[in-house]
């Protein structure tokens, strides 16, 4: 009886201390996350203001960057780096300035951590 009570309490304590495991969440295989390392502005026309473009491309590219702590601190996820300093172009998407932004990013695959887990993630 006492052992059973102890076990119950240990489970209770376990619930308090263990990180939230990613149960019941579909494995986001293929979900890509970026950490932006650099940006530059590619004007559409010669008259486009390069300084404003550079600043707005900072906002545009940085908006695509994840806060990596939002993946690692929640528990149960990991980020696997799949590319370093990959460049890609996005439209600046600003109604007051034309042109594109060239963002440079480290690319990560978002994975549910399956090791040390007693059951596979749901969906597998």
């Amino acid at each position: 009886m006492r052992n059973k009570a102890t076990l119950h309490i240990l489970l209770l304590l376990g619930m308090l201390t263990l990180p939230a495991f990613a149960e019941d969440v579909k494995d986001p295989e293929g979900e890509i996350a970026y950490v932006i390392n650099d940006y530059r502005y590619a004007p559409a026309e010669t008259g486009d203001d390069p300084d404003s473009g550079h600043a707005l491309c900072g906002t545009r590219c940085n908006a695509l960057s994840i806060d990596y702590l939002n993946y690692l601190m929640v528990g149960g996820w990991e980020l696997r780096k799949v590319a370093t300093n990959r460049e890609f172009t996005v439209p600046l998407d600003n109604p007051f300035l034309k042109g594109n932004c060239i963002c440079t990013a480290d690319e990560y695959l978002v994975k549910v951590i399956t090791r040390n887990s007693t059951k596979p993630p749901a969906g597998n």
């Binding site: 009570a5 102890t6 309490i9 240990l10 209770l12 304590l13 308090l16 201390t17």
Partner: peptide
């Protein structure tokens, strides 16, 4: 937890550590 710790030393110790 407080109640369990009162009746069980092991829980009390774990509770203290935590």
């Amino acid at each position: 937890l407080a109640k369990a710790a009162k009746s069980n030393d092991r829980v009390a110790r774990m509770g203290y550590n935590m």
